[in-house]
Amino acid sequence: MPPASSVAERAPDPDVPVDASISLASTGGRRGDSIFRLVALAAGLLVLVVLAGIAFATTRQAWPAFSAEGIGFLTSSDWDPNNGKFGALAFIWGTLLSSAIALVIGVPISIGIALYTNEMAPRRLRRPVTYVIDLLAAIPSVVYGLWGVLVLAPNILPVYDSINSAVGDVPGLSWLFGGKASGRSFMTAGLILAIMIIPIVTSLSREVIATVPRSQREAAYGMGATRWEMIRSAVLPWSRGGIVGATMLGLGRAMGETIAVALVIGSNAQITTHLFSPGDSMAGVIANQWGESSGTYSAALIGLGVVLFAVTILVNVIARRVVRHFDERLKVA
């Protein structure tokens, strides 16, 4: 930033009359402002350009598959590379379902941990708990995947079986808990993903919870609220927007996760609501099949990447809307 340093380097000249130096000082400050604005704008534009570039390049690479399949790429679940059929719907379904499971399980746990460490834990327990949760984020995802496939999948299968046989016939539940259970399944992938998103969702939630003003807590306590009532009426409403944002970041992470999901989801492209059935995900398919692909097949896998990218951006845009909606409704009127 050459202009910035030249402003900073300009030393006050002892010969310049006081009035002049005053006017110089103020233009310098204004120039600093505009330089900062330009740099920020440039950085923002650069990010947009990079994003657009990636989107463009991958779409171009994927074009052979897109043009061969047309809208069928999104609406068909017939994925048969040997016969040139590339319908991605089952993978889209697998990504969405496993990520949804991850949110349903992971977010309440994360909020619970965040509330515990911020509001309830004795002071000396707060740091250790926070530290352990943060440590979860440091575990490589392939380790999660291997643990899932070697330990979790075989051990949890009996649990799946007994849940299926217990509630599989209950009318409102059979659509979730039917079919033949498999250790590697949407549910197992969702569980692993839940563990993987807990650190990020927890730490972001903790941060927004910490910003709840003391005056809000005092308002609730002052009215005779118990701790839980205070959390419900002061902490959660105040941090709802931020928690939704944290959740959406977790969702982004879950949808993009590749290797752990590829290992535990079962690699069986099918669209079913049965949580304990095997499925497949977009990122997982790319990882599993990239090595053996060529030509249109490769293009189709790249196309999956494009779709994943688009879905992730869509989720982010929706998340922003939701956050803004909450913030406006709650904070400004």
Partner: peptide, 17 residues
């Protein structure tokens, strides 16, 4: 105690409701 004894603070602190 706080249910019977109300408090008003220096800075207005309505809930965002």
């Amino acid at each position: 105690v706080r249910k019977r004894i109300g408090m008003v603070f220096q800075k207005p602190n309505p809930f965002p409701k």
